[in-house]
């Protein structure tokens, strides 16, 4: 979202907020009533899916997980950087070693379909590792 869009959203929000301030009716304030959700049980569905994904990431070997993620070509994967936060000091060292291995060898050796996209993911994972490592050693 660019600066102009942010300003537009902010201005729209400001106008809406100012026009929707609770109005006094016979001395009583109107209360906001939330709209109904789209799906009755969407919240529990989400909680289960979230739990499953977290458990999957936590229980996966870092190298296998990286490979799976790269092969999946899935969008919205920044969260995977957080994998580093779940690792112990020894595991982090091992994780770095594996990332180094992936970087030093040609990416195409790891059964990858899209080399360019895969390299970007590995670079991002590497950056994620570095930021976690730096934050732990500050």
């Amino acid at each position: 979202m660019g600066f102009v869009e942010k300003v537009r959203v902010f201005e729209d929000a400001k106008k809406y907020y100012e026009s929707s301030l609770p109005k006094l009716i016979d001395g009583e304030t109107q209360e906001y009533t939330p709209r109904r959700p789209y799906y009755k049980d969407a919240s529990s569905y989400y909680q289960n899916a979230e739990h499953n994904l977290k458990a999957y990431i936590k229980n996966s070997d870092a190298f296998s997980l990286i490979n799976e993620i790269i092969e999946s070509n899935s969008p919205r994967l920044d969260f995977i950087f957080e994998k580093g936060k779940m690792l112990s000091e020894e595991e982090m060292a091992s994780f770095k070693e594996k990332l180094d291995y992936v970087r030093s060898h040609n990416i195409s050796t790891t059964k990858l379909s899209n080399e360019t996209v895969s390299k970007i993911y590995v670079d991002k994972l590497y950056e994620g590792y570095n930021s976690v490592h730096e934050s732990l050693h500050r």
Binding site: P34, R35, R36, P37, Y38, Y39, A42, S43, Y45, Y46, N48, A49, E50, N52, L53, Y56, S60, L65, E68, I69, S72, S74, R76
Partner: peptide, 21 residues
């Protein structure tokens, strides 16, 4: 169930939430 299935199930669940949720 592999990563892709688990991940996309999560995305589907996220997309099924109401705007308020």
């Amino acid at each position: 169930m592999g990563f892709v299935e688990v991940y996309y199930d999560y995305i589907r669940a996220l997309e099924s939430l109401s705007d308020e949720e």
